[in-house]
Design a protein around this nucleic acid. Structure first.
Length: 723
DNA sequence: CTCGAGCTCTTTTCT
DNA sequence: AGAGCTCGAG
């Protein structure tokens, strides 16, 4: 135990073990330290059995971090504490108790993409076109319903008078029926169904209530209603519930997080003790004060003031760039300058509001030879080839998974087209069986021919693989899948750099599976698939490597860096254009800004550009209101000297004229795609040197030395031919 | 059945 | 700017 290393408040938070405890932990106040020490304290001082402790986090990364820090404190006993994410926790329970809610325990978890595929499918069946009803918005509406425990019946009842909502209600109903038929659940269902299970079967709930004597929840400000309910139900017996959070860091309202949960914790639970951790150990005093002057503009927050005993440190540098190019070069130049003064590349982070902004900084870093890593974008398990292979494994594991079957029935191409699949699906629907099972009756469904032969062969292959699955470990099953589907070979034959990188990813999947077999307790196929769906790229961070970090502010939460650049601090970007008209959304943006500022330990730069090319258009945005909210005494303004004109209105109108002119010029330019042979070496003005490897119309696939494969439309961007 | 031209869309993102 | 999706031609 390291109780003596804690400050008074932290110590108090650790030793207050019984009853309901709300720890309001400001940024950088050592909250993980408090939770981990509390777990150790319960076990070592209070003789609580580790088996009776539950600690819940939002991300795998946070769970792993917590697990390893508890292990450092108490050793092997830490393995017996339940430390997991909400979703992993619910999955584990549902796997034991699936039969109570009429699911099979090898149910498949559908990720966001699978979910959208199935929703689109449902909308097709109902005859709703996506022009009137946008798939993504239906998906998110269904998510919000489940987050707030609104069942299909409830939703329908509320929606009767509303044309759009009653349509969504029908999609929701069909979608849930399809999930059930496929023996599948989406992410939201994991929590929704867990609560349904507890409500329906009090004896099951009782079992878990007995087990969890002490419950801890991290990042409580990010919980949604269903997560709140889950915690509340589980803690009902022992009533030892400790939640840790910071209302000022609630930035996930748009995905259902309810800030009310933390603001009204004291009403929701009995005899709540509240402890505030306000001392910041991370940042300089100037940074903390800047964060404070911004966040105080929000109404309706818990009263607290973070402070630090550190020195003032440097002032915050604000740079007003002329364009996004100027801005990105400024960032790169400053990083270069600071590395010469002894900073490492890994000390730097560039934080932006949206992933689409990252490219310019990437280019500038390449130019200045600064090693960097971009987080976000396409994740490993989202890659096409990985999803394909996993779809095979899912179908083998769960024959009812029609979504996976449809994904791979013609991958690699075996001459089974959309019409055939449609007929098969219809037959399956009419006879209430899975698509895989309906293949048995294929001769009744489609006439004899090439498609029928292919589909029979497909079914035989899946049958054989299922037999292998019973006797082989997952890693060997994977080999069988790859060889019998001819997946690898068809990629090898393609001989494009894309297929090359796909092959590499498949090899990566092989090592992921081997790693899983080495480390996991339950080595079953179901378990592997669930792990794969619930995990993400962010989980691993190699602290050893030396590179600058580029990421969105959202993904930076919980991290810290000696030097932080907050870029594109402009109205309509940060705060985003969709937030500026809505006071509560704007407050969330401001909290996001608070999170961004408090990531910095020593130096903070905030930059903005007077004009910016984004989503194919140039815009002139005003400086972010958040910049002006920072106390002027804490700031140094840097600006290009030739910007004499302070009147932004005038600058704006001049710029608009210039842009109009530029547009007209461009329209004339957009014509004649270039005709270049495959194999030609070319140069692109932003991606650098590369080689043409494929051609589709006027568009070329090009492997660039630095950035990999990109598709370039030469009627828009001209390429310089090198050889 | 497969390929390619032309259309639309674009915040954030963990699970 | 560029990715993804739909629809029509071969």
């Amino acid at each position: 135990m390291e109780l003596d290393k804690l400050n008074e408040k932290q110590k108090q938070a650790v030793i207050t073990t019984d009853g309901a405890l709300l720890i309001l932990a400001g940024a950088g106040s050592g909250k993980t330290r408090v939770i981990t020490n509390k777990i150790a304290y319960l076990i070592e001082e209070k003789n609580v059995n580790p088996y009776n402790i539950l600690a819940i986090t939002f991300t795998n990364k946070a769970a792993k971090e917590m697990q390893s820090r508890v292990e450092d404190l108490i050793g092997i006993d830490s393995k017996r504490v339940w430390i997991s994410t909400f979703h992993a926790f619910c999955t584990r329970i549902l796997r034991y108790e699936a039969s109570h809610i009429l699911y099979e325990n090898n149910f498949t978890i559908y990720d966001t993409q699978d979910k959208q595929v199935l929703i689109k499918n449902c909308m097709d069946i109902l005859g709703y076109d996506k022009e009137t009803l946008n798939i993504a918005s239906v998906a998110s509406e269904i998510s919000r319903a489940k987050d707030s425990m609104v069942s299909v019946d409830d939703y329908e009842a509320e929606a009767t008078s509303d044309y759009r909502n009653s349509k969504i209600a029908r999609v929701y109903r069909l979608y849930q029926e399809e999930l059930k038929k496929n023996n599948a659940m989406d992410f939201d269902d994991l929590i929704y169904n867990c609560i349904r299970l507890f409500k329906l079967h009090k004896e099951v709930l009782g079992k878990y209530q007995d087990k969890f004597e002490y419950i801890m929840v991290d990042e409580y400000q990010d919980t949604n209603y269903s997560q709140y309910l889950l915690i509340k139900m589980l803690s009902q017996k022992h009533k030892n519930i400790c939640v840790v959070g910071d209302d000022d860091q609630s930035i996930y309202g748009w995905r259902g997080a309810d800030i009310r949960n933390i603001l009204e914790f004291e009403k929701d639970f009995e005899n709540v003790i509240q402890i505030k951790l306000e001392q910041n150990y991370r940042s300089t005093s100037n940074i903390i004060n800047a964060a404070g002057t911004v966040i105080k503009n929000n109404e309706g927050r818990k009263d607290k003031k973070i402070w630090t005993s550190s020195d003032n440190g440097d002032k915050i540098t604000i740079y007003e760039a002329t364009s996004e190019n100027d801005e990105s070069l400024y960032v790169a130049q400053n990083i270069r300058k600071l590395t010469e003064q002894g900073y490492k590349y890994s000390d730097f982070a560039v934080l932006y509001r949206a992933n689409a902004l990252s490219r310019k900084y990437e280019e500038a870093f390449m130019k200045y030879k600064i090693p960097y890593k971009i987080f976000g974008g396409l994740k490993f398990y989202d890659r096409m080839e990985i999803k394909d292979i996993l779809a095979y494994l899912r179908l083998i594991d769960n024959k009812n998974d029609d979504v996976s079957l449809k994904r791979i029935i013609n991958v690699p191409k075996r001459g089974i087209g959309a019409k055939t699949v449609e007929k098969l699906e219809q037959y399956a629907r009419e006879h209430s069986i899975s698509m895989l099972d309906s293949i048995e009756y294929i001769s009744q469904i489609i006439g004899a021919g090439k498609a029928q032969e292919s589909i029979k062969k497909f079914a035989v292959m899946i049958g054989a693989l299922k037999a292998f699955a019973k006797i082989l470990p997952v890693s060997e099953l994977l080999e069988k899948v790859i060889s019998s589907t001819n997946y690898e070979n068809s990629l090898i034959e393609e001989k494009t750099p894309e297929s090359q990188s796909r092959l590499e990813n498949i090899n990566e999947l092989k090592s992921v599976i081997q790693e899983f077999e080495r480390t996991s307790e339950d080595k079953s196929l179901s378990d592997f698939l669930q792990n794969a769906t619930l995990s993400t790229d962010m989980d691993e961070d190699d602290k050893k490597s030396n590179y600058a970090t580029l990421m969105t502010i959202h993904s930076a939460k919980g991290l810290e860096f000696p030097v932080v650049f907050i870029v594109a601090a402009e109205e309509n970007i940060f705060p985003s254009s969709r937030s500026v008209l809505d006071e509560s959304k704007l407050e969330e943006e401001r909290r996001l800004c608070y999170v961004a500022i408090t990531r910095a330990k020593e130096k903070l730069f905030i930059t903005r550009a007077k004009s910016r090319l984004l989503y194919g258009k140039t815009n002139c945005n005003l400086s972010s209101r958040f910049i002006s909210e920072i106390d002027k005494d804490l700031v140094i303004n840097e600006k290009k000297e030739y910007y004499v004109d302070e009147d932004s209105k005038q600058a704006y109108s001049l710029h608009q004229k210039y842009i109009e002119k530029y547009k007209i010029m461009n329209e004339h330019k957009k014509d004649e795609p270039q005709d270049i042979k495959i194999g030609t070496k070319v140069s692109h003005k932003t991606f650098g040197k590369g080689m043409i490897v494929g051609k589709t119309g006027g568009k070329y696939s090009i492997v660039f030395d630095k950035v990999g494969v990109k598709t370039i439309d030469t009627s828009v961007v001209k390429l310089e031919i090198l050889s």
